[in-house]
Design a binder for these strands. Structure first.
Lengths: 206, 206
DNA sequence: CTGAATTCTGGACATCGTGTCTATATTTGT
DNA sequence: ACAAATATAGACACGATGTCCAGAATTCAG
């Protein structure tokens, strides 16, 4: 029953096109007037589609459309992070910071919606959580390598500290940080991250 | 016209009582079922009030009620932070961390709504922003005292890094951090904050 | 304590956005 | 070219919102 890759037939061209149009329209509208007072009809108007068409694709209202749209980008980032092997990591290996800044620069509008809009709060929270978890895993490896059993600050706290700081700076940068380029931003965050980690596990200076 | 403090007469007891009841009801409901599918009537029912009464106080719907309710607590925190004199601050003087953790512990429910609910996103963002600004000011003082003109990392970035990290850990703690008490949490954050700052302004070690 | 002002109440009402449905037109896969 | 899937426009019921009103209840001021 529908196991072979053949049987799972690719969706109609119209579906993909429609969903992309709706997503683009919603993102544009959010950046213009904010999320809350956008009606379904506003979206379909902007996308040049009939109102009824919307319900052929989404039963969860605006939320579902926004989630789908943002989820695609988030998955892309998550995949990139996952692809980074946990082994082969020296003490100076980049935290996800570099990747995150690069990715955010590439999808600026979507990230601004993701980090600023209340509607996307759940999603961005989930993403922060994911990155925190990822940091925590990576962190366990590092500790074992250096031969530390018990850091001064518990690992989950360190992880949430770092991922929240990263997102905070990322958000600031997207809104008013055109002065600095991706590499500079990533380097600055990394600098502070490393120091915070060292202090948290009880190691002195550089 | 209405300048003397006499003219501004204190609001009716019923108004205060009603608004408090409505606020309490909303907070309770949010923690139970989340913000989105709460109807005005749900709130007035819970508060034992007529539905029409709601509109005698708020014309901005649920949002206005929630904002008013949270704003009161936030103002309390902001006032406490403002009260802390900028002068008289040694290098080990507490960042707002200690105060924030204490305040959050005292108003746990409200803070959980503030930090978790999408609806409060604007408010919590504003609070983070305020604290970031406060950090930035304090930071300028510290730099002058130590005789550093230009930190490696620009001050606004440092400020947003720190305030975001603080809020991230705070959020984590409110949800699943019953293990650690206020002082421990504040101390851990302070430890990491100090190290991050030192690295950001280009000073070595402790 | 008493009267006047304010607030609360419960019901009726118009309005708006949502979601569903149907018949028809259009586009796509084969 | 034909069958299947999708888009469309309009009609419809429904629920929540916000407003209004007349009367009851509470509070304030004297």
């Amino acid at each position: 029953m529908d196991i072979s890759p053949e049987t799972a037939r690719r969706p109609d061209r119209r579906r993909e096109r429609t969903q992309r149009q709706l997503g683009d329209a919603l993102i544009a509208l959010i950046l213009e007037r904010g999320y809350d007072d956008i009606r379904i009809e506003d979206i379909t108007d902007r996308a040049n589609l009939g109102r009824a068409t919307f319900y052929l694709h989404f039963h969860g209202g605006k939320d579902e459309l926004l989630l789908l749209t943002l989820q695609r980008v988030i998955d892309e980032l998550v995949d990139q992070i996952q692809a980074m092997p946990l082994s082969q990591i020296g003490i100076e290996s980049p935290f996800p910071s570099q990747i995150a800044f690069e990715h955010a620069a590439k999808h600026r509008d979507l990230y601004r919606v993701l980090l600023r809009s209340h509607s996307a709060h759940r999603l961005s929270a989930r993403l922060r959580e994911h990155i925190a978890l990822r940091i925590e895993q990576r962190f366990a490896d590092r500790l074992a390598a250096v031969g530390i059993e018990m850091p001064l600050v518990p690992a989950p706290i360190i992880a949430h500290y770092l991922s929240s700081a990263l997102f905070g700076v990322l958000e600031w940068w997207l809104e008013r940080g055109d002065l600095y380029d991706v590499d500079t931003m990533a380097a600055m965050v990394r600098q502070m991250h490393m120091a915070a980690i060292m202090a948290a596990i009880g190691v002195e200076g550089t």
